[in-house]
Nucleic acid binder design. Sequence first.
DNA 1: CATATGACCTATG
DNA 2: TCATAGGCCATAT
Length: 129
Amino acid sequence: MRADMSSSKYQRIWDVVAEIPYGRVASYGQIARIAGLGGQARQVGYALHSTPDGLDLPWHRVINAQGRISFPKGSPSYRRQRELLEAEGIEFSNGRLDLTAYRWQPGDAELPKEYLEAEQNARKFSPRR
DNA sequence: CATATGACCTATG
DNA sequence: TCATAGGCCATAT
């Protein structure tokens, strides 16, 4: 929807984030891999930070690989993100949520099979470009 | 151009 | 569980 921002390098990242469904979460590294930026999890954080106004992304559904919110605990951003997630039925326990329970997996049909396996093994970066 | 920093990740001890 | 180290790369100074 929103044309003309296809010029941004972060377009693919935004596209992926936009697909995370209600009540589900994804990690930065996961987003990076799906967007074809294996190993560049940091860029996902940057992409979200520089999200243009008007682009209504479910940014709160992106958390780190430890199942924790990546903002400093107690910061306004931390609280906002946690509220949004809890409002979607996601429960926290000791500042952490259960990734095995809430992690989003893109539709099996549209995903290369090696992705799911990679998620299981998930111990190596995808080849870049 | 050289460093430092960051909404990160994995491996290892 | 925590700490350290190495990797990735766009931005800031």
